[in-house]
Simulated scan of single mutants.
Amino acid sequence: MLDSQLEVARQAKHYLNQIDDSEYQEIAKPYLSGSAGMHMRHIIDHYLALQRGVELGLVDYNKRNRYSNIEKSTEVAFTEWLKIEQWLTSICDSDLNAPVLVISEVSLHKTQTVQVLSSLARELVFVSSHAIHHFSLLSVMQSIKGKTSPENFGVAPATVTFQRAQA
């Protein structure tokens, strides 16, 4: 399972190595309302919230680092992914079932948060799935510019398995 988390980090770093900062900051209006950098920062925020939450005993996905340098610089984002990889490699298999309390907002119409009991493993599944779906948007951004993305970038593992079975 931890290897799959490292796959996500490698995909992110590979993507970051293929674009420059101006592309990273560009917003493809009217199609999208955020830049690639904003999406990448959002993904990283979730991993950092999980990492902090494991240390503090409460994962709070509502805390974001909006307008940080992660949104502006591919180099800064790349460095954050290196730190995430270091954290992931420090996790032992025995830690995966450790309980974690998660807090998250759940309503668009009013400020409403819930707290749920989860596990590190379940939350890693969540943040990686969340990352893959945002990678899909990053791939769309590249497509709008007439560029391609790395193979299977933004494609769910179950979809890749299905495609292999069809081949």
Rank of each mutant, 00 (worst) to 15 (best):
L58P: 01
G34M: 12
W81V: 13
S90Q: 09
L88R: 04
M38V: 06
G57D: 08
T161Q: 14
E71F: 07
A12K: 01
P150I: 03
N62V: 01
M141P: 00
P150S: 07
E105C: 10
L124R: 01
N152E: 13
I44S: 02
E75T: 15
P157T: 03
N62C: 05
I103Q: 14
Q11Y: 05
L82D: 12
S35F: 11
N65W: 05
E105G: 13
S118I: 09
A12R: 00
Q115D: 05
E55S: 11
Q5Y: 00
Q25W: 07
A49C: 13
D3Y: 06
G34K: 10
G146S: 07
K147Y: 11
I103G: 03
S136D: 13
V160I: 15
L32H: 14
V59P: 01
S68F: 09
N97A: 11
L108E: 12
K145R: 15
L56T: 12
N97P: 03
G34Q: 11
S129N: 15
S107P: 07
A12V: 04
A156D: 08
L58F: 08
M1T: 02
N62D: 15
A28E: 14
L16V: 03
R41T: 08
A165R: 09
G37D: 00
E105Q: 15
F135W: 08
I44G: 02
L56K: 10
L48I: 14
H46C: 08
R164G: 03
A9P: 02
T79R: 12
K29W: 08
M141Q: 14
D3V: 00
R64N: 13
A98C: 10
I84Q: 01
A165V: 07
V125W: 04
Y61S: 04
S128A: 08
L2N: 08
L32G: 02
T159D: 10
V102Y: 03
L138Q: 01
I44C: 05
H134E: 06
W87L: 06
S129I: 04
L50V: 14
E71A: 06
N17T: 08
H42V: 11
I43T: 12
A131S: 15
Q142T: 03
E85G: 10
A165I: 09
K83S: 12
P30C: 11
N65E: 13
I19G: 01
G57W: 05
S68W: 07
V59D: 01
P150L: 01
E80Q: 13
D3P: 06
G37M: 04
S118Y: 04
L88V: 15
E75R: 13
S90W: 01
P157L: 07
D60E: 12
A167N: 10
N17L: 06
I44Y: 02
I144L: 15
F78I: 03
V114M: 14
F135S: 02
